[in-house]
């Protein structure tokens, strides 16, 4: 369903299930998500708050916190075995605290969060934290790591990087902090960068700077980016491929142009109609999605979107769950309108 030229996706997530076991009930945060991440492209993951975007990212990196854990599915990371042969590893099967996963986390896959304050320690300088990350993954001296850290800060457009190395995260502005976090995430040359709402807390002008930076770095380093956001404008500007999630499942995946101009799933269509656009006519009401997102403890039976779906087919949509299936070579959708039950 993805990428041209038949190149294998760099990451394939299949039927991933990550649940949180609490006294009050089980939160099925990710509940059978499947998607492919095309190599050297930007994949966007969109969906409303609570649909499982961040938990998906944390599952890939194996940093899901208790009481959550992966209860099913696979996360296949394809990487060169060094001898020109492609090798693969199922991240879902690794020990989260083991050596291999620690090498992959930060080494193969970098992560940047929405709130950079939480990923920098307040008691260590920005420089020391980047140097430590580099030394964790590469066998280099402190001096070499410091040089590399300076180079990274320079690469992400931080002025006077030597001086900034010795500052603390709280001394930096929001935009600079986000850049420093990108520098840290990229310091070990990851081939995949997961950016979870990297610009949500920023002004549009700073957001534009950071998005530009990510694009530039992708061109330069040939990175694959997984961009998690609820901002469909950011997706339209940045992504090649889009995954739409609803209640822990992927309801649609396709190339960005198809998602915006030929969406198939009723949820994707409704979501697109409901966004305020700068292109819109002044003072007009927006179409809204009927109802609200169900509480995670009581997921609807059948298709998770059926209580809100304008195309709901009684007897079908509330009986069984549709699975994600191709509608053409590039686009997949999980809806009975396209596949009989």
């Amino acid at each position: 369903m993805t990428s041209e030229g038949g190149a294998a996706p760099i990451l394939s997530v299949r039927d991933l299930k990550t649940h949180f076991f609490q006294d009050e009930g089980t939160v099925r945060a990710v509940d059978g998500a499947s998607f492919d991440v095309p190599r050297r492209k930007t994949l966007g993951i969109v969906g409303e708050s609570g649909c499982g975007k961040s938990v998906t990212a944390r599952s890939i990196l194996r940093i899901v916190e208790r009481p959550g854990r992966i209860v099913g599915g696979s996360i296949l990371l394809r990487r060169d075995a060094g001898n020109g042969q492609a090798g693969g590893v199922d991240l879902a099967g690794l020990d989260p605290a083991g050596y291999e996963m620690r090498q992959i986390r930060g080494g193969d896959i970098g992560l940047i969060f929405q709130e950079p304050m939480t990923s920098f320690s307040p008691v260590h300088t920005v420089g020391n934290q980047i140097i430590e990350t580099i030394q964790l993954h590469q066998n280099v001296s402190v001096e070499a790591a410091r040089l590399k850290a300076t180079e990274m800060l320079h690469l992400v457009g931080i002025p006077k990087p030597e001086r900034r190395l010795d500052e603390y995260a709280f001394q930096l502005s929001g935009g600079l902090r986000q850049r420093a976090m990108i520098a840290m995430a990229l310091s070990c040359g990851p081939r995949i960068l997961i950016a979870d709402e990297p610009t949500t807390a920023l002004d549009v002008t700073t957001q534009a700077q950071i998005l530009d930076l990510l694009r530039h770095l992708q061109d330069r380093e040939g990175m694959t980016i997984i961009l998690i956001t609820h901002n469909l404008g950011v997706v339209a500007e940045m992504c090649d491929e889009v995954v739409v999630m609803y209640l822990g499942r992927v309801v649609e995946q396709g190339p960005v142009d198809a998602i915006f101009h030929a969406p198939k799933h009723p949820y994707t269509k409704a979501l697109l109609r409901s966004i305020p656009s700068i292109q819109a006519t002044v003072r007009t009401e927006l179409p809204t999605i009927a109802g609200s997102i169900p509480h995670p403890y009581n997921r609807p039976s059948g298709c998770p979107f059926h209580p809100r779906c304008p195309d709901f087919m009684p007897g079908t949509c509330d009986r069984s769950e549709p699975s994600l299936r191709p509608v053409d070579d590039n686009q997949g959708v999980s809806c009975f309108l396209y596949h009989p039950a």
Binding site: V204, A208, L211, N231, V235, A236, E237, F260
Partner: peptide, 13 residues
């Protein structure tokens, strides 16, 4: 400011 706002249409990049 207007230019910086991401437009929700990939054809308007």
């Amino acid at each position: 400011l207007l230019s910086a706002v991401p437009k929700p249409d990939p054809r308007l990049r």
